[in-house]
Computed example of a mutant assay.
Amino acid sequence: MWVGSTSERGLHEVVLQVVGWSVNRVLAGHGGGSVDVALTHDGGVRVADYGPDGPSAADEDTGGRDLEALLTRMSSDEGAGRHIAHVSRSGQAGLFVANVLSSRLTAEVRRGGTCRVQEYARGVAAAQPATTESMAGSRTVIAFWPDTEIFETTRCSFAVLAERLRQVAFLNRSLRISLTDERPAGGAREVSFRFPDGVRDFVAALDAETPGTHHPDIIAFEHEDPRMAGTMEVALLWSGSRRERIRGFANSRATRQGGTHLDGFRDGVAAAVTEYARDRGLLTGDDAPRADGINDGLTAVVSVKLDHLEYLGATQGLLGNSDVRGCVGDAVRRHLGSRLKEHPQHAAQVIDRILRNTHQD
């Protein structure tokens, strides 16, 4: 129930639960920070976070609940009322799930010249916390060994986790996140991600996946709208490809079935293109470009971060927040419309392509 499977997929969910908790601690610092993930040679996983203001800033943001409570009790409201990153598909059950599904877990908090360590066995504290002096610096480290009596495999896929962490870095521009695999006999391998331009970098990477195409004219903006109690980041471009690639995310988790944020995005793009074409005399009467013509060759990322998420259906793949559609639609229409007016040569190329696609049989 907590992670959906005892297969490799469920194993990865446990890892992502812990990573998500650490990511949100870093983001709570409202500045640059890092999360380091390691797959250890003895089958464990180690997740360390280093926030810009130290762990105490994130602890205060979670209402003062201590680490032991998060490890031993299921929290039904963790992250409520904050734009948290839902790194795992299973939500924010967090550290409790990793603790009870691991044969062993250690939690280390280094702060203010002291280091506090506690060890657990299958969710139960194995000893009293040990406190010692430590070197300067602040960090929190969760190391755990998934239970071989629960999971079919306890060997994580480096490639699968690397791709998911790369996506998280795209969607949280202030975050640096790394993954190290200490298991290979020939030596460790490591990847590290940080994308200063966020979803703009995401769209550029998607565009680069299509051979022979590269388009620097990426339109991107970030906007906060109190009507939807959240923020949006949008980036898009029309490429030479005929393929439509529009990806939506809610609190850093993919919404594979779409939802109100993507409906609003398409509304806004259609409105901006139609208004611009009509103002330039390229459309007459009630004629309007077809949606498939507008979206042909469109690559886009639409990321919303909301205080409260509402999903339609049980899979949490379809965003249902009703206010989001109008908010995203208005923002896209306004920002895209302004961009088209400010860059008439690029706008002419986009509109000409759309109109040609619209009039093709």
Rank of each mutant, 00 (worst) to 15 (best):
G44I: 07
L161T: 01
G20A: 07
A143K: 05
E13I: 03
S103D: 11
D49H: 08
N321S: 15
R253M: 05
D201V: 10
S134R: 04
V14W: 00
Q167T: 15
V19L: 12
D207A: 10
P146S: 00
V14T: 00
H12A: 02
H223C: 06
A125Q: 07
S22Y: 04
Q360G: 13
R116E: 05
D307I: 08
E190H: 07
A38K: 05
R176L: 14
R82C: 12
V117A: 04
F249L: 02
E108R: 11
C115F: 05
W238D: 01
R325F: 03
T260K: 05
S103R: 10
H223D: 05
R353G: 12
V328P: 08
G186R: 10
S134L: 08
P344F: 04
I354K: 08
H223Q: 12
A69Y: 11
L67P: 04
G268C: 05
F96S: 03
G293A: 14
V124C: 04
G33E: 08
A270C: 12
S56C: 08
I150S: 00
G230N: 06
A220T: 11
T260R: 09
V19D: 01
G326W: 06
R73C: 15
K341W: 12
I354R: 11
T358S: 13
R164L: 06
F96H: 14
I351P: 13
L105E: 05
V124D: 03
E222I: 03
D66S: 13
R73F: 13
G4Y: 10
R356W: 11
N24G: 01
Q167E: 14
G187I: 11
R339T: 10
Q257M: 05
P196I: 00
L171D: 00
G32S: 05
A208P: 14
E182C: 12
Q128L: 14
A220Q: 07
V19W: 03
G29R: 00
R173W: 06
S5Q: 12
I294C: 09
S303N: 14
A28R: 03
L318S: 00
A250C: 13
W21L: 04
D292G: 06
P184M: 04
D49E: 14
E342Q: 13
R183Q: 15
Q118H: 01
A188N: 09
L336Y: 06
P216D: 12
T231E: 14
A125S: 10
S103P: 08
